[in-house]
Every structure is written in structure tokens, then in C-alpha cells.
């Protein structure tokens, strides 16, 4: 479904941000990216969505019709049209603060379809009533239908996060990317958001970055752990305390630690 092949990103200064990242995400999966802050989780997702450039590797994903989309390659930029086509099939659930604050909630949801409507229509007419009622259905699914005409800037953190998910649902993508969707929320709201995402993942796979191992073990089907831009673990979500220690406390710098982790993943 999604295939990340040997993705590397080095800055001109020589700093390595991503180091030969390769993994697959298949239908029905809810994959969690774990790793300390600065490990490269956001950068991986930005690369998949074609929002940054890389120095090596490529990202390919295929739709149900068997069509392949390449969002990013090292050989420079994909053409604007191809990128647009690929992007509209990836639903990015950004942190909620990335919604347009002065627009009504409903408009923020409808923005999800921009990749599918003609740019001229955007300027001359805007969205249709049909699209608006579909957006209402997406809002209803996340329990925010009553907020459709509220200004987005006046919502609370949890509500905003639900709207961001509604935008992604309304987009009807083949794959969801979620960068720390629950990090700024209280435990109760975080739990509710995870419960929303779990059934979504059954329709179309989700790749998300999280900082809550407990929740990840409960809801996700697989964990990929990053450390300083490299994958150090790719396997089942039920991690032991020791493994978590290695992921977060940086002991993974020792090569034998990485081997231990990988061995544990395989067993």
C-alpha cells in the first residue's frame, strides 16, 4: 500500500535528519511512529506528504485501482500536477492548530476536497451544497455536527483536533498521516480521539506519531521506533519497559542495543 524506500535526508551542514528509512504500511494497519523529540517523526511524514525534499530514496503508494503515486524522490521535485494528485489521496491530520482560524468549522472541513475541485471553481463559486452536506456527515462522525457554523478559532483543543480528523475523513484519502494528533490533549480527550481513529484505520491505514506508549499498545497494530533518524524497531506494539527505555533514553546509540531490540522484534 505505502512503501517508503531508503529515505535519507542530510542537510548541507552535514547533519543527518533521516537515515535510510524503509518500511511498508499495508491495508488495515494502524502504525505508530515512536521516538524522542527530534528523532525525525515529523520529517518522515512531511517527506511522505511531499512537503519537504530528501537526499535519497522515494515514497510510492498505490490505490485500490492499482495506480501508483510517487510523492517524493531524491531526483528533485515531482511535477506539481503529480504531487497534487498524490497528495489528495493522503489525508494529513495535522495538529489542530493548523486549521484556518477565521473560517467556520464547516469550511475547514471542506478544504479537504480542494485537491479534487478545479482551481477556477475555488475562485468563482466555491464548494457546492452537496459537498457541504457530505462535510456535515464527516463532522457528525467525529461528533462535531453542532459546531458547523462556529468560528474555528473559538474551539477548544479537543474540538479542533476532531475537526482536523473530519477534514481528513471528508478528503476520502487512501492513507492517513497523523502527526502527534493527541499530544496537546488531556488524557480523556486523547482516548476519545484514539477511539475515533481506530475504526478509520480499518478502512484506510493510518501512520501516526505518538508519545503515549500505553495508548499505542492498546490501539495500534504495529510500532516503528525512530532514533536520530534511523529505524531501530519495527514490530509488534506491545513493548517491554526495557525496550521503551532504549527507545527514549538514547541507549540505542550502542550498536548492540539496536541488535537486541531487533532480535526482540523478530522473536
Amino acid at each position: 500500500m505505502l512503501e517508503v524506500k531508503g529515505l535519507s535526508k542530510r542537510l548541507p551542514t552535514g547533519k543527518t535528519i533521516l537515515n535510510d528509512i524503509s518500511f511498508r504500511v499495508d491495508k488495515g494497519e494502524f502504525v505508530a511512529l515512536l521516538g524522542a523529540s527530534g528523532a525525525g517523526k515529523s520529517m518522515t511524514m512531511r517527506a511522505i506528504a511531499g512537503l519537504t525534499s530528501v537526499t535519497a530514496g522515494e515514497v510510492v503508494f498505490s490505490g485500490e485501482s492499482g495506480k501508483c503515486y510517487t510523492t517524493i524522490t531524491a531526483s528533485g521535485k515531482t511535477s506539481g500536477k503529480d504531487l497534487r494528485r498524490a497528495r489528495r489521496n493522503i489525508g494529513v491530520i495535522f495538529q489542530g492548530s493548523n486549521l484556518v482560524k477565521r473560517l467556520p468549522v464547516l469550511d475547514n472541513v471542506m478544504i479537504g476536497r480542494l485537491g479534487r475541485i478545479h482551481p477556477l471553481r475555488s475562485w468563482l463559486y466555491g464548494f457546492t451544497d452537496q459537498e457541504a452536506s457530505e462535510a456535515m456527515a464527516a463532522l457528525e462522525r467525529v461528533g462535531m455536527a453542532g459546531f458547523a457554523s462556529r468560528r474555528t478559532g473559538s474551539l477548544s483543543g479537543g474540538e479542533v483536533q476532531r475537526v482536523a480528523i473530519a477534514r481528513a475523513i471528508f478528503q476520502r484519502p487512501l492513507l492517513y498521516l497523523a502527526d502527534e494528533p493527541v499530544s496537546s490533549l488531556d488524557p480523556k480527550n486523547a482516548e476519545a480521539i484514539m477511539q475515533l481513529m481506530q475504526p478509520l484505520a480499518r478502512e484506510h491505514p493510518i501512520l501516526g506519531a505518538f508519545h503515549q506508549p500505553g495508548m499505542v499498545m492498546h490501539y495500534c497494530t504495529r510500532v516503528i521506533a525512530l532514533h536520530k533518524g534511523s529505524i531501530i524497531y519495527n514490530g509488534a506494539p506491545n513493548l517491554s519497559a526495557k525496550q521503551l527505555d532504549e527507545i527514549y533514553c538514547g541507549q540505542a546509540d550502542r550498536p548492540e542495543a539496536t541488535q537486541e531490540l531487533t532480535a526482540a522484534a523478530e522473536s
Binding site: D107, D129, E131, A132
Partner: peptide, 18 residues
């Protein structure tokens, strides 16, 4: 199913376009 819930008229696209 999608039309199950009415869009509030103040954010209905056709109304706003007009």
C-alpha cells in the same frame, strides 16, 4: 446517508455565494 443532517443556512455554500 450523507444528507441526513441539514447544513446550517448561514454556512450553506449556495446561500453564501448569493
Amino acid at each position: 446517508m450523507s444528507a441526513s443532517l441539514a447544513v446550517p443556512s448561514n454556512v450553506l455554500p449556495s446561500v453564501r455565494f448569493r
